[in-house]
C-alpha cells in the first residue's frame, strides 16, 4: 500500500522546540463494517510512535484504536536549537513502518 508521507513542522517557540505532525493512516478500529460486503474491516492502527531529537528520544507514544484517523500530534521539548533534526518513526499493528525527518526552524 502506497503510504503518503507524514507531515512534520518543527520550530523554536522561545527556548523550546515545538513540533506538530500529521501521519496519514486509516487507524481502523476493527469494529467498522464494509458497507458493501458486510464484512468487518480488520484492525489497522499505529501502535507506537517514537519522536527523536537527534539521537535522543523525546517522546514515545503508545496508541490504541481510539486515536483518530490521520493522527495529529504536537509536543514541546527543551534543549534544542534552530537547525537541529527531529525525526518521527512509527510502526503499526500490521508491521508497516515509516520514518520522516524535519529540521527545526
Amino acid at each position: 500500500m502506497a503510504q503518503k508521507p507524514m507531515k512534520i513542522r518543527a520550530w523554536m517557540d522561545g527556548e523550546r522546540a515545538m513540533v506538530k505532525a500529521i501521519i496519514f493512516h486509516p487507524m481502523e478500529t476493527g469494529l467498522r463494517k464494509d458497507q458493501k460486503t458486510g464484512k468487518k474491516i480488520p484492525e489497522h492502527f499505529i501502535k507506537e510512535v517514537i519522536c527523536k531529537h537527534g539521537n535522543k528520544t523525546v517522546l514515545n507514544c503508545l496508541w490504541g484504536t481510539a486515536v483518530s484517523k490521520n493522527p495529529f500530534m504536537s509536543f514541546r521539548f527543551n534543549g534544542a536549537k534552530s537547525g537541529d533534526t527531529v525525526s518521527i518513526n512509527w510502526v503499526d499493528n500490521q508491521g508497516n513502518k515509516e520514518s520522516t525527518e524535519a529540521k527545526i526552524k
Binding site: R16, K20, T29, L31, H53, K56, T57, V58, L59, N60, C61, L62, W63, G64, T65, A66, V67, S68, P71, F72, M73, S74, F75, R76, F77, N78, G79
Partner: peptide, 28 residues
C-alpha cells in the same frame, strides 16, 4: 475515555526534556 469500549486511547512517555504538553485527536 471511560465510555469507550476500551478506555485507554493513548499513552505518551515523556523524555527528560519534554514538556508535560500533548495534543492529539481521539475517537469517542
Amino acid at each position: 475515555i471511560p465510555n469507550n469500549a476500551s478506555p485507554l486511547a493513548a499513552k505518551y512517555v515523556l523524555g527528560k526534556d519534554t514538556d508535560g504538553f500533548i495534543n492529539l485527536r481521539v475517537k469517542m
